[in-house]
């Protein structure tokens, strides 16, 4: 499989390491501080760990977790769709498209999410009735706003529209990161613009888009706690606060919420790791395609090159010395 080393490998050098007493001292100091912190957490009865454990599995709390997840993934999904549209509009030749996209991003990034959520909650006051029909012409269907935009939908829309502005910038950066030569090569093969975007540019942009989007998802998980501004009252933070106030023990319930947020974040981080690996295929030498290796190739040469590359002493841009 691998390059077999030719002949006998030389005996590596044996040298005494440089003494580093400072490392030992600093490590001991930090460990003592950590021990003190853990001790303070565990021994202080005011944390009421028994109550934490009890309410961690409470029906209302678990249902709150469910709603928080629905809000997080629902709004992120909607935001991603909007963001790709906004980013493509931003790069359009049509000045109206560019202008609208710019305005959208300017507005939703420029106002606080809390304000936007309150606004969406008040939509039914501003526009008691919504209708479908010809613009400035006859109406076909009319709804009562309150029936259509419930507190849940107001919360979801509010989060998604705000997030779409941030994601649009991330997507735009991703699209710009793809070598224009890729578009040219695809064009030269006779591919149409839409196909070039979907099959060539976006998949490569994903490598740049996924890490900050994972970041945004984790951020969104916690931003959902603001939807009490709508007011939507079923998600995790509101649920735990309500219980804490009812039983006059706010601190254990805050810890319950924190533990759940930490758990979900940890799961999201694992997911992000696999997504990054998938979209990094073909970019990281040997370890490609979700750990499938060089897809059936025995790849003698690349592996050796990987080792050289891993030493970090060479440039891996093959064109570095070619272009003047």
């Amino acid at each position: 499989m691998e390059d077999r080393p030719s002949g006998q490998l030389p005996e590596p050098l044996h040298a005494r390491p440089v003494p580093r007493p400072g490392r030992w001292v600093s490590a001991v100091v930090v460990l003592v501080l950590v021990a003190m912190a853990v001790n303070a957490l565990v021994t202080n009865p005011n944390f009421r760990w028994d109550t934490v454990w009890l309410y961690l599995r409470d029906v209302i709390v678990v249902r709150g977790v469910g709603w928080t997840l629905v809000l997080t993934f629902g709004s992120m999904a909607l935001a991603i769709v909007l963001a790709v549209m906004l980013a493509v509009m931003r790069r359009s030749d049509n000045p109206v498209m560019r202008g609208v996209s710019w305005f959208w991003i300017w507005f939703f990034r420029g106002t606080p999410i809390y304000t936007q959520l309150v606004f969406w909650g008040l939509l039914s006051v501003l526009y008691p009735r919504l209708s479908l029909g010809v613009p400035f012409g006859p109406e076909f269907f009319t709804f009562t706003t309150q029936d259509v935009i419930t507190a849940f939908w107001a919360a979801l829309l509010g989060l998604a529209l705000n997030e779409s502005a941030y994601l649009a910038e991330i997507v735009r950066a991703g699209l710009s990161s793809v070598d224009p030569g890729q578009t040219e090569a695809a064009k030269a093969l006779g591919m149409k613009d839409g196909k070039i975007l979907r099959r060539i540019v976006l998949p490569q942009a994903m490598r740049v888009i996924v890490p900050p989007t994972g970041n945004e998802t984790i951020s969104m998980l916690k931003t959902t706690s603001l939807v009490l501004a709508v007011p939507f009252t079923l998600e995790l933070t509101y649920a735990t606060n309500a219980i804490g106030n009812r039983i006059f023990q706010p601190i254990p319930l805050l810890i319950v919420a924190a533990l759940w947020y930490l758990l979900i974040t940890s799961v999201l981080m694992v997911g992000q790791h696999y997504l990054e690996r998938y979209y990094g295929r073909g970019f990281d030498g040997g370890r490609t395609g979700g750990g499938r290796g060089p897809r059936g190739g025995r790849g003698r040469k690349p592996r050796k090159q990987d080792l050289i590359g891993a030493s970090g002493t060479t440039k891996d841009d093959p064109f570095l010395e070619v272009t003047p």
């Binding site: 040219e184 090569a185 695809a186 064009k187 006779g190 149409k192 490569q204 073909g282 064109f319």
Partner: peptide, 26 residues
């Protein structure tokens, strides 16, 4: 129309100095 131009291009092969292979595809 860009669609017609794409069709014209599809009959002409082009090879670039910097290859421009699609890096995410084998």
């Amino acid at each position: 129309h860009p669609k017609v131009i794409a069709k014209q291009r599809s009959r002409i092969g082009m090879v670039f100095q910097r290859f421009h292979l699609f890096p995410h595809k084998t």
